[in-house]
Amino acid sequence: MRRRILPGLPLSLGLTLVYISIIIVLPLGALIFKAASLGPEDYWRIISSERAVASYRVTVLCALAATLFNLVFGLALAWVLVRYRFPGRRLLDAVVDLPFALPTAVAGIALTTLFASNGWFGGALAQIGIKVAYTPLGIMIAMAFTSLPFIVRTVQPVLEELDPALEEAGQTLGAGDLSIFLRVMLPLLAPALLAGVSLSFARSLGEFGAIIFIAGNQPYETEITALLAFIRLEEYDYPASAAIASVMLLAAFLMLAVTNLLQARALRYSERG
């Protein structure tokens, strides 16, 4: 009889379902239940208020900008870590995971210190007329900092598994570096890139601690949705807080569903190729 290291399916499945119910289902259920306590008119009034819509716009646009930056920079960083050997490579590889280990509030304070008008980076940028702290640009930087590892760590193992013979074959056929990347490498990397982009975007949407210190939190200008929900919570307006949070929850679910669909199509395309 084959010995099983882990317990059987009934016990493993039961423990998994209990864990998921306590950690995920119950909090989300409480959020939905509290939001559902509002009538349709009250719910729509809260989520469509001018201040709420402004917070959606700031959050989504800054998250998109941060994700696009991470897509380019994260792919380049993963490529360098996999394809090149240089002094300090292991240190750089470890630094990539720093946003995972660093408390987001500490990251926000550090970024604010660096990019304030009298900071190391902020002072130099201020001399050329670029203000970072307490502007949407600061929000983008905070989002990019906390979500960068998702793209690097999803693309890096795929790059490590790619056969270098594919690139050599393209070079033998006379293709240039850009053509090889776009026609050979990118289709193979597409599923991992989509997964990393979706995780990076979702993290940016929900980021709180790293943003509130550098954003300035000005309504209609630098106030993110997570902060607005927190403000309503501090005002003991729990239904309004849950309603605003439910909008971001629905947006995250829709984004993940679309990303999974695109990822499945990209995977089928790469397998046919």
Rank of each mutant, 00 (worst) to 15 (best):
A252R: 04
G39V: 00
I211P: 02
L11G: 05
A63I: 08
S179H: 14
A78Y: 01
A242V: 13
L162A: 13
Y56M: 13
F230H: 12
P10A: 00
L38W: 04
D163R: 02
L178G: 06
P157K: 15
Y269K: 10
V152G: 01
A245M: 14
A210N: 00
L75E: 06
G129L: 11
L261V: 04
K131Q: 12
Q171A: 15
L98Y: 06
I47E: 11
S117E: 11
E235K: 00
F115A: 06
I23L: 08
A245G: 15
S204P: 02
V96A: 05
M248Q: 15
S246A: 12
T222H: 07
V247Y: 03
G123E: 03
E223F: 02
T172A: 11
V184W: 06
V58T: 14
F230M: 11
R183E: 10
R4L: 03
A78D: 01
W79I: 00
V155L: 08
S246M: 12
Y220V: 13
R89W: 05
L261C: 03
F201K: 10
A36K: 10
P157M: 15
N260T: 04
L114H: 01
P7I: 02
A165L: 15
A264E: 13
A195Q: 02
V247Q: 04
T146Y: 06
A192E: 02
L173K: 03
L227I: 12
V158D: 01
R45G: 07
D177K: 15
F115L: 11
F73S: 05
E161I: 15
G273K: 13
G14K: 13
S37D: 00
L254V: 12
I214H: 07
N260K: 10
T222C: 04
T67Y: 10
A142V: 08
Y236R: 12
A76I: 08
E168M: 09
R2V: 15
G170F: 08
P103I: 10
I128P: 05
L81R: 08
L178E: 12
R265M: 07
S241N: 09
G170P: 09
F86W: 02
D97K: 07
E207R: 13
V82M: 00
A245E: 07
L205P: 03
Q171P: 05
L38I: 06
P191F: 05
F230P: 02
